[in-house]
Design a protein around this nucleic acid. Sequence first.
DNA 1: GGTTTAGTAAAGCAAACTTGACGAATTAGT
DNA 2: ACTAATTCGTCAAGTTTGCTTTACTAAACC
Lengths: 160, 160
Amino acid sequence: MPAPPSDEFAAALAVAKNASWAQVLFKCARLLNERALALLQKRTKQHVRPSHTALFPHIDLQGTRPGVLAERVGISKQAVGQLVEELVEMGLLEQVADPADGRARLVMFSARGKKGLLMGLAMLGELEAQLGNVIGTADAKHMHATLLRLLAALEETSVP
Amino acid sequence: MPAPPSDEFAAALAVAKNASWAQVLFKCARLLNERALALLQKRTKQHVRPSHTALFPHIDLQGTRPGVLAERVGISKQAVGQLVEELVEMGLLEQVADPADGRARLVMFSARGKKGLLMGLAMLGELEAQLGNVIGTADAKHMHATLLRLLAALEETSVP
DNA sequence: GGTTTAGTAAAGCAAACTTGACGAATTAGT
DNA sequence: ACTAATTCGTCAAGTTTGCTTTACTAAACC
């Protein structure tokens, strides 16, 4: 007698699930992100949100205009305006008039923002070291290299 | 003459950034997720959202009660109720009365939902294969194994 | 028969945006 | 030189997503 169709489905599902590294990647990223943000808020006592941390790597040390920032992050200028406003209130960013253009302003890190940024990265380093002890430093390094190439592949190739 | 302090900061920043695999992991996950969701909506013409796909892996083939689902995903029963309602409207899930309990209902995949699930996983497999060609199949496999151990480490160890 | 338990209903909230309308400075056209 | 069009950012309002809280019914358990 033939197996019921639901078993075929279950088998196909199991195979597809097992083969997929993307799902594992998603889950790792989500869990690690949650942990890092929880730790960050615990240490800084500031309400830094994911949208804020997404902004940081795009701010040049010499300062960046909000419009440029919006383009880099891929959101509207208004959205950047809101985020910057919040971060200025927290004392992490500051704005200065752009000497080259009276309409424009330059967003840059304040002294406190710079310290906070380094602290945040150090904190991430701690987490990575802690996890590296569990998964193996060599494998962590190997994964880092592979992820860098994956990132390049994602940024270069277009959506099919 | 000594270098200005901002250069020290820039150097420290560059070092910290370069050493961090977590940031690369986050960016890869975000980009890949965006691409997968865009492709999914393009193919299915349905408005499947991340919160929906987060639900799928927790639904047993024999059906799962909303309350149990809520516990597994870590959200309220009401939130599950909303998501299930939407997915039933899309024709991907269906609900049947639980024969063991008159108050309870069982959430399960409809025939169309099962087909959709397999299609979605196949689609993810396509993306992975395409990226695997770029980053190298062996490295992709190695990364998969490392990520699985990272996941285990994240789920086992507590927040410091 | 009283108390859990399963789920529903309605409202609200926070995050992370967007759209549309605007003012002020700059650049371009004539 | 002087409008005219463009660009830079802001203000205010609205939207979507993904939840939560509070209050409630109906069935089941004891």
